[in-house]
Amino acid sequence: MEALRMRIVILGLSMTSSWGNGHATIFRELVREMVRRGHDVLFLERDMPWFAAHRDLPLPPWGRTELYQDLADLSDRFTQDVRDADLVVVGSYVPQGVEVGRWVQATTRGIPAFYDLDTAVTLAKLARSDFEYLSPDLIPGYRLYLSVIGGPMLRRIERELGSPAARALYRGVDPELYLPRPSADSWDLGYLGTYGADRQPTLERLMLEAARVWRTGRFVVAGPQYPAVVRWTSNVERVQHLSPSQHPEFYGAQRFTLSITRADRVLAGYSPGARLFEAAACGVPIISDVWNGVESVFVPGEEILLARTAKDTLGYLRDLSEEDRRTLGAKARARVLAEHTSAHRALAVEQYAREASSGAAAAGTPVERLIV
């Protein structure tokens, strides 16, 4: 069965600005693919000053993107869109997300869904009664709980939090943008990521300690918000910010790239980060920290390299043959193209919507526009 054209409304953190967040790129790629597949998509973004000052895509070319000022403005201008949509998705970290979620669930006649791009953080917040953008009473009312963490966490969301259907929706990647762009190697190892206090010890252990040992090695860290107290050696170059369009060229200038998983995602497992798929699609060999479920995404030793110490990192950088290095990168790219593109994620959303609409048919939810 093929999905018919859906009317979709997404209320997300941002699509116009990738500054300091990974949400924008994820939404851009998902919306683009949904539009390509014939769906009518409206993306609603709260107009926040920090995004307004750093908009690298002020007018997204896919579907329709609108900014709103506050909850009153949202309700005044977009009630009809939300009411008539087949699928309404609220993302994590949406400002006043609890109020937005209540409004969506009370307004839409379609399927209300929550897209948690921060699942481990969200569950930790709920455990300490921090209801910044999601509260326990909302979860049963979201007929889909889409999560960037898969595996056993999904069953926990259903059993303990009352979600009718928790489903994995990992980050996809655009193979037309993220593709190999070989260049003269500028760095032996690079890392792309905004500063995170939980990730910094791993960056220190896997890269910065290696840089101190191998002083002739060339390293680079790209991303904002690193504090002045971080000690950078002279062989570690710093890049403050890269827009998504610059990522492939950045990856192409590295012999290897480093992938670091947030501490809470390491504990949760089954949580591939956004940069992991980007780098693999660009064909650059990946050195990753170790987390449960990585083997469900890439084959260790064949498609990805795992490191626990600086010694592990240096072993890969200095001892792996050029032929093996290139083969590993090519195999990772092949896996991404086969299973992890944005088109795959759009298909997953259609399938999840099909399941949700079918299961809710007895409650009177219209399904004829969703399913052939």
Rank of each mutant, 00 (worst) to 15 (best):
M1I: 15
T16R: 15
G20P: 09
N21C: 12
G22M: 06
T25V: 14
R28N: 10
L30M: 04
R32Q: 09
E33D: 13
V35R: 09
R37M: 09
R37W: 03
G38Y: 11
H39A: 00
M48R: 15
W50N: 05
D56S: 03
W62R: 03
W62G: 04
T65C: 07
E66Y: 07
L67V: 08
L67P: 11
D70M: 05
D70S: 08
A72M: 02
D76K: 13
T79C: 06
V82H: 01
R83I: 06
L87N: 07
V88M: 04
V89K: 01
G97A: 10
G101D: 06
G101I: 14
Q105G: 08
I111P: 00
P112F: 05
Y115V: 10
D118Q: 13
D118W: 10
V121R: 02
V121I: 13
K125A: 09
L126S: 06
A127Y: 12
D137M: 03
L138I: 13
P140L: 10
G141D: 04
G151C: 03
G151Q: 06
M153S: 05
R155Q: 14
R155F: 09
R156Q: 10
I157L: 03
R167V: 04
L169K: 08
V173P: 00
V173R: 05
P175A: 08
E176L: 14
E176H: 13
Y178H: 13
P182D: 13
P182Q: 12
S183T: 15
D185S: 10
D188M: 02
Y191L: 06
G193L: 05
G196Q: 12
Q200H: 15
P201W: 05
A211T: 11
V213R: 05
V220P: 07
V229G: 00
V229S: 02
R231V: 06
V236L: 04
Q240R: 14
S245Y: 03
Q246K: 15
P248T: 10
R262T: 05
R262G: 05
A268P: 00
E278T: 04
A281W: 00
V284P: 03
I286F: 12
D289W: 12
V290T: 09
G293V: 03
G293D: 10
G293H: 13
F298H: 01
F298P: 01
P300A: 06
P300Y: 14
G301Q: 08
I304S: 02
A307R: 08
A310Q: 09
G315H: 04
D319F: 14
L320E: 02
R326P: 00
T327K: 04
A338I: 15
A343I: 00
A348K: 07
V349L: 01
E355L: 01
A356H: 11
G359K: 09
